[in-house]
């Protein structure tokens, strides 16, 4: 199983997940998760011939941490160290 990490933002309307290769957004986290799954299927599909580990992987661990510094005002950081850190498991071989 491979692990892929995203930073998450909320722009007031939508959740946005992004890393060096992928940026997706959704109005709800469930929608965001769905978009991530679609995107991973496409991205990992392209890499399939190059990375042997990925060719075998049907399950992906996705971690998402809210970008605290961009979403929460500076004066609040001192009260609590982070916002959320989500872990979801995506089965690429399932619809």
């Amino acid at each position: 199983m491979i692990t892929i990490s995203f930073d998450v933002l909320h722009d007031g309307q939508k959740w946005i997940a992004r890393n060096d290769e992928i940026t997706v957004s959704g109005e709800t986290l469930a929608e965001l998760d769905g978009k991530i799954k679609e995107s991973l299927k496409k991205t990992l599909g392209k890499r399939e011939s190059k990375v042997s580990e990925v060719t075998k992987a049907t399950r992906v661990k996705v971690t998402m941490e809210l970008d605290y510094r961009r979403n929460v005002p500076h004066w609040i950081w001192q009260y609590h160290p982070y916002y959320f850190y989500r872990t979801i498991y995506i089965d690429l071989d399932k619809p």
């Binding site: 909320h10 986290l29 929460v72 005002p73 982070y82 916002y83 959320f84």
Partner: peptide, 24 residues
């Protein structure tokens, strides 16, 4: 515990960040 709890809870229930910020 005030702001800390509002942030922790909002994170735990995956609330939009604006919610704990206004409550804080």
């Amino acid at each position: 515990c005030g702001v800390s709890a509002a942030i922790a809870t909002a994170g735990a229930i995956r609330a939009r960040p604006i919610v704990p910020v206004m409550i804080s």
